[in-house]
Design a protein around this nucleic acid. Structure first.
Lengths: 217, 217, 217, 217
DNA sequence: TATGAATGAGGCTTCATTCAT
DNA sequence: GATGAATGAAGCCTCATTCAT
């Protein structure tokens, strides 16, 4: 881009770039508008009319950037999902924590992101239904990464440990739990942060299960 | 219903009660039709036209029984949800099991019901989005009952046990896990029963948490 | 229908019939409106909006009577075409004329109908393009009937006569000629009747071909 | 074009002529593209987007050469029609044939051209509807020339011959016949040449009319 | 009470045309 | 001149809801 700008001074190539940039800007605006609109009205309420109005362009413009409405909606989750995942990773990875604590922190970070970016909430939530393919792919990616991350915390030789298949199950449990807790305790309207007892309960469950054996003593 | 029809032939003074009954019957038929239609086409595809066609009544009739489409859709989850919950309870409660096993069985029973009544799957799944108020209420009810049920398995004096608030969190985790696992491993198209490793993973998690301390020394 | 009306007095069956009638009336109005609109704006200009406006109903009403726009357009030619054909037949058949005169009269009758029902003009003309299937079927029917009619005027043993295949060709020629002449000499804006020289030229061509052999002596 | 480009490198004073030439070349490309597109998709499918894409220029460029879409479409028939007419003339005129045979050959030549240049088929066919003014003018021109050509084969003193007005009618008949036969027997998908019986039927009609008088003997 | 025809707002998409670059 | 992004009117169709019968 810097290069481009310098070239402009030489003469002709400028317009093309300018135009191209503007085109990209418009596309981004449509995309951002879609995120906002889906966040507010849900996928079902995300009409092209609303999205273009929010973006401040004509309805027809939409179709210069996306083949049709669904194509845009399908791109929402990958983008937003990756954003969320990256942010969570970023806020978690560099810490020197035990695996349990890491998992708890991962969950807390997820809640924080949810509160910071309220429109992501609905996208994450509704994508499964309105962008099923994108959702399936997204989940696959998340699960794969998550399994890998979890494995790092396990003793591979533990005879009582989780098999690979079981680990996948566990990841689904964690994701389901996280989603459900998010809905309940990290709603856009709620307080700044999730209550402490949410994290403590989650932590306990991770550490010793639902029904700790006093006998383990 | 056959009785009804034969009575009508006796003349005009058809008793009011019969009318009322017929009215109720029609309402029930609309309701059942709605369940079937939502099960098949989802909430978004549950148009009044489809529901009335399935029920075998005129479109206008719909509005004699329900103020509008949403009102009916809002009633779907409470009914279906209670059905599912009751069935799960029924298949679990009478057993003489440890609390852990009970919880695992509860989860397995849920999966079984899902497979037996495929239309519930979609309703449970989509209700959150298309009938949010009903969903919230439904969840509240479930949580309350669930917390009570779980408490029975705990030692109330355990200093490391879960507080009431924490228990509620745990229930949300369990519900989320269950929902997520159901979507993944108990889809209508899948095999008869959920794979064993799903239940074993769930069981392990319930019994000793995610990261069992071999060091528990 | 007469029976229906008498039944009405007995009580309940009335509404149904009345409603049914009204429904049919609306459909007919849409149909007539379509004929008018296509006559005026052509198939390409026959939008659902124009048709329903002409019929005085809401746009949505259209779809209660026709699955979609094309379905109605496809029905136009069969109806109008049969109307035209029947009228031509009616005005021609009962006469005691020589085959040549019959053919000339058939053509003249066609022109008369065109002038009397100006909107048919465009439908006949444009159907080939906008309702190709209906057009093919229509033409097939016309050709078959026409060939049969022509054959009645021929000596089947004439060694110089037309074969069946050739007759079909001739019919296409006649139809093409008729259409082309209609366009030129029986346009809606023109005089009451087609000029005499049109018919005389047509007559001559039918009787002795384009280049009469003076040698025929 | 290659020459043009090399010249440009000499600097800014690129001769006006070159510009002009390029302009003309572009216009011609648009024109040819339009013929191709209309041949393939019909007038109705000949969007500016398709034409410019086929021509390899930007959409906006279109409007530097043609005031609007219709203006270009209106020019298609004159050009294509003249091409067809000239080819037919060329293949017919130099022959030493009787007038009857000439007419038959003219018709056959027309069919041949139709098969050789499939895109003309659609233009000729649809122009009447989508470019009515151009069509009327085109037909006028054709008729005038045709009448003149026919006259050469007639004995001007024959008291039973065709008057000038009648001749015009005859020409319309011939054109209509030709068009109709072309649509039926010379469709782009059909065999190489029109069946023999088509030409023989046409020939018979031209020579002795529809109902030859055995009495003429 | 039940019916089902009618309504009309609103959704998606296309495309001729304009205009800043 | 040339470009191509942007426009916005117009087209088709669906569907929740109303209302005369």
């Amino acid at each position: 881009m810097i290069a481009n700008l310098s070239v402009q001074e030489t003469g002709q190539p400028r317009p093309k770039l300018r135009r191209n940039e503007k085109h990209i800007v418009t596309k981004r605006r449509l995309f951002q508008a879609a995120i906002k609109v889906v966040g507010k009205y849900g996928y079902a309420g995300a009409s092209v009319a609303r999205i273009t109005a929010e973006a401040g362009v004509a309805q027809g413009t939409f179709y210069l950037h996306f083949e049709n409405r669904q194509v845009l909606l399908d791109q929402l989750l990958p983008a937003v999902g990756e954003d969320v995942a990256a942010t969570v990773r970023e806020r978690t990875s560099f810490e020197e924590l035990s695996p349990e604590d890491t998992e708890v922190e991962r969950c807390r970070a997820f809640f924080d992101v949810l509160k910071e970016m309220p429109e992501f909430f609905r996208i994450l939530n509704e994508a499964e239904m309105f962008a099923p393919e994108a959702y399936a792919k997204h989940i696959d990616g998340i699960v794969t990464g998550y399994v890998r991350a979890l494995k790092r915390g396990f003793d591979p030789d533990d005879p009582d440990g989780y098999t690979d298949e079981e680990l996948e199950v566990i990841v689904h449990v964690l994701l389901g739990a996280r989603a459900c807790l998010g809905k309940r305790y990290a709603k856009p309207g709620d307080a700044e942060t999730v209550p402490d007892y949410v994290m403590s309960a989650y932590s306990k469950l991770m550490r010793r299960g639902l029904f700790p054996k006093p006998a383990t003593k």
